[in-house]
Design a protein around this nucleic acid. Sequence first.
DNA 1: TTGAACGCTACGAATTTCGTAACTCAACTT
DNA 2: AAGTTGAGTTACGAAATTCGTAGCGTTCAA
Lengths: 137, 137
Amino acid sequence: MDELDREILEILRRDARTPYTEIAKEVGTSEGTIRNRVEGMVESGVIERFTVATRTGNVKAMVEITVDVNVHTGGLTEQMAEWEQVDFVWQVSGDEDIVLVVDTTDTRSLNELIARAREMDDVVSTTTRLILDEWLG
Amino acid sequence: MDELDREILEILRRDARTPYTEIAKEVGTSEGTIRNRVEGMVESGVIERFTVATRTGNVKAMVEITVDVNVHTGGLTEQMAEWEQVDFVWQVSGDEDIVLVVDTTDTRSLNELIARAREMDDVVSTTTRLILDEWLG
DNA sequence: TTGAACGCTACGAATTTCGTAACTCAACTT
DNA sequence: AAGTTGAGTTACGAAATTCGTAGCGTTCAA
C-alpha cells in the first residue's frame, strides 16, 4: 500500500470500470503494472469487491442494534450480512453496537427485516433511521 | 426496473466486473440486452457508480451531525460530499440530520474532518462513531 | 392493416484484458 | 567486488470483452 496503490484506488472508487490502460496513463506507468497492483490488492484483501452504488427508488435505512453485553457479535453480524436487503453490517462504537445499512423495495419489507432482527436472541433493541437522501463522495 | 433489471443489479452488486456475456448466460438472454439494460440503468441514475469496496486498514467512522432547525441542508451536504475522505453523505430521519461515512488514513485526519464540520455555521453538534469492523451484504 | 416505438438479437470491429517472458534495480550472500 | 535473488515493471501477441450498428419481432394506436 504505497502512494501508487492509493492513487489507483482513488480512481477505481470514482469509476471501477476505468480501463487499466487509462489508469496507467493517468498515474504515469504501464497497463501491466496497474494490473499487477490491482490483482495484488484484490489478493491481499485491500480491495474487497467491485460493486455498484445504486439509487433504485427503494427505501434505504440505517438500523441501529443494541445487543446484550458480553455477547460475541461475530456470529450475529455474519448472519445479518447474508440477509437479502443488507448492504453493510458495521460493528461500531457508541451507544448501539451494530449498524445495518439496508436497501429495501418498500417500507413493508423494511419492517420485516427489523422484525427479523428483533427476534434474534441477543438483540436488545433496534432504532431505525430512514436515509432520506444520499450523496457520494 | 423490472425483474430482469433487478437480477442484473444483484449480480453486479456481488461482482461489478462480471462480463455482460456471463450475466447474459446466467439470466438467460443475450449480451446486447444486458448491455442495453446496464446502460439504461446508468443513464436513468439507478446505477450511480461502479466502485470498489476497500479494507485499507484505514479508520472508518460515522459522523452524525445536527444542524440548526430550519436550515436547508442541501448546500451543506453537497459541500461535504466533496471532502476527500467522505464516502457517503446521508440525510436521515431521527435525532441527527446528516450522517457522514468517512474513510481516513488515521485518527488525526478523522479529527481534522470533524473539526472542519464543526466549524460550519449551521452545524450545531457532531457525534462520531468508529466503525470497528465491516461486513458486506 | 399499417406504421411507429421499443426492446432483443446478431455479428464484425475496436478495445481491453490476459499470459508470459524479459528487463531493472536494490538488497543480500559469498 | 561480483554474483544471486526477488519484487516490481515493461513489452507484446493471443484471447476475451465491449462497442457500433443493422435487422428482427412484438405491441399499441391510428
